[in-house]
């Protein structure tokens, strides 16, 4: 497992006191933000009965499982079991925690402790994430680039494209737009991103047929 930062979500898609599903390689994540704004990435599984924590609810600085309301705080430690209000939960009840940090409106995650902070892209901010049914290499090529971090032009404006490879020949495209871009520009960028998705998915399908 790499200890590099992986882009997993956009900050704007996880407002305060909410949780959303994410991925790091094969691992399903619950990415959540506390009421005070702290971002965290945990294993998407309550240790009690295996329920996805990304379906859970946030109160204050805790993420709680939607199934039985078990509450988890700092470091993934279980701090509350509603069925036994008087009980101090054993230390062993803990959700595996991943590193999470934000830069340029992107939530970056890592397994382990990366050497430095995640990359900044001055002048850009997170705009939109798309899930694309094409491998990362095909998506990069459709964009006209290579690698997982591509700076270029899409539709009406300059963009930063962060490509996150996912299991099953799927990718996430986390798109950064110029700070302060107006609604018309962003609308056109959105359409261009959807066109890119169609192109990448068509190319992936074609490549699959050729190998079949």
């Amino acid at each position: 497992m790499t200890t590099d930062w992986t882009p997993a979500a956009l900050s704007r898609d996880i407002p305060a006191a909410s949780a959303a599903p994410g991925q790091l390689g094969e691992t399903d994540l619950a990415i959540w933000r506390s009421a005070s704004g702290r971002i965290a990435a945990w294993s998407d599984r309550c240790p009690h009965r295996g329920m996805r924590l990304s379906h859970g609810f946030v109160r204050g600085e805790r993420l709680s499982c939607i199934y039985h309301g078990w509450g988890y705080g700092e470091g993934g430690q279980c701090v509350r079991i509603p069925a036994h209000p008087e009980l101090t939960p054993p230390e062993a009840i803990k959700v595996p925690v991943f590193a999470a940090a934000e830069a340029s409106g992107v939530v970056w995650v890592a397994d382990g402790t990366p050497a430095g902070a995640p990359p900044e892209f001055p002048g850009f901010e997170g705009f939109r994430s798309l899930r694309i049914h094409a491998p990362a290499t095909v998506l990069a090529r459709a964009f006209g680039g290579a690698g997982h971090v591509i700076e270029g032009t899409l539709g009406p404006c300059a963009v930063v494209a962060l490509i996150q490879p996912l299991p099953g020949n799927v990718s996430a495209l986390h798109l950064l737009a110029p700070e302060g871009a107006g609604p018309a520009t962003l609308d056109a960028l959105s359409l261009a991103a959807e066109a890119l998705r169609r192109t990448a998915e068509a190319q992936a399908e074609q490549a699959e047929e050729e190998t079949a």
């Binding site: 240790p47 295996g50 039985h68 069925a83 036994h84 062993a92």
Partner: peptide, 8 residues
């Protein structure tokens, strides 16, 4: 081991 139950 895979899941942690309580008295409930």
């Amino acid at each position: 081991g895979m899941e942690i139950p309580t008295r409930a």
